[in-house]
């Protein structure tokens, strides 16, 4: 029964558009949006934009992921690492990373680099924080048992510490993916000449609200898809939690 109100809302939207209450330059009708989506798919524009945006998120995520995981491991596994790394990272994370755009433009120009940097910054912090916290939450009782039972230091890390950090790290991964999409959307407002952001901004110039809505829907679908992928990964990796 939960589908009733969403469907009613779309019908209401269509009704408002058809009767002229909602002018197309404010918001195109659902039918027009669907039609434009079909056209954009047919002429390959959407696919091109999609590939460009996906590539930005992928490489930004890769860079930020490597940085966040590397720092999280160093600061989680070594006291010295924590003493040196954690204070500056904790200070920097209080900055809203989207506010860094002006600096990123000055540092990296207006090409692909600031967009990747923005995604990477959005990804690195949640991954660092959750990996670090996950490692620190390791049950000391398990570590003690492993010590008495003759595990080497490497074995303690591989079999005790890191696995116990996995659930928290997966939480970080989901947050990081959410932030990655958000960073992409904001980053693509910077002088983009390709990608979903370009498609949307270009459409705005021509008052094509239908295309804007198509872009937004694609953003939403991408976010949902990656979230579902992480949940799939969670079920696979955490299958020992058979309760």
């Amino acid at each position: 029964m939960r589908w009733i109100s969403p469907v009613a809302l779309v019908l209401l939207w269509q009704l408002a558009s058809s009767t002229g209450v909602l002018p197309p330059e404010k918001l195109a009708s659902p039918l027009t949006v669907a039609q434009s989506a079909g056209e954009l798919i047919a002429d390959g524009q959407l696919a091109d934009a999609f590939v460009v945006s996906l590539g930005r998120v992928f490489f930004g995520f890769l860079i930020g992921g490597i940085i966040g995981v590397a720092l999280g491991l160093v600061s989680g596994l070594s006291r010295w690492g924590e003493t040196l790394l954690d204070p500056p990272v904790q200070m920097l994370r209080t900055l809203p990373h989207l506010g860094l755009i002006p600096l990123f433009i000055l540092w990296f120009g207006i090409g692909e680099e600031p967009k990747l940097a923005l995604v990477a910054a959005g990804v690195a912090f949640p991954l660092y924080l959750n990996l670090h916290a996950g490692i620190r939450q390791t049950d000391p009782g398990l570590v003690e048992a492993a010590k008495v039972l003759g595990y080497s230091r490497i074995e303690r890390i591989v079999h005790v510490v890191l696995p116990s950090a996995v659930p928290q790290t997966l939480v970080g991964l989901r947050i990081a993916l959410g932030t990655a999409w958000l960073s992409l959307i904001v980053g693509e407002q910077i002088n983009a000449d390709a990608g979903l952001g370009f498609l949307i901004n270009n459409a705005r110039e021509f008052l094509r609200t239908d295309v804007v809505v198509v872009g937004l829907v694609v953003y939403a679908l991408l976010g949902l898809t990656t979230d579902a992928l992480v949940r799939l990964l969670e079920r696979r990796v955490l299958r020992w939690r058979t309760r």
Binding site: G141, L142, A145, L149, G150, Y151, H159, P163
Partner: peptide, 26 residues
């Protein structure tokens, strides 16, 4: 050789039972 069993079993929940026994044995 010293070995120990605690009040709580302290098994690694993410390793199967046989690996809990065999790990660290080398």
């Amino acid at each position: 050789a010293v070995s120990i069993a605690f009040q709580q079993p302290r098994l690694l929940p993410w390793r199967k039972v046989w690996r809990n026994i065999a790990l660290g044995l080398h």
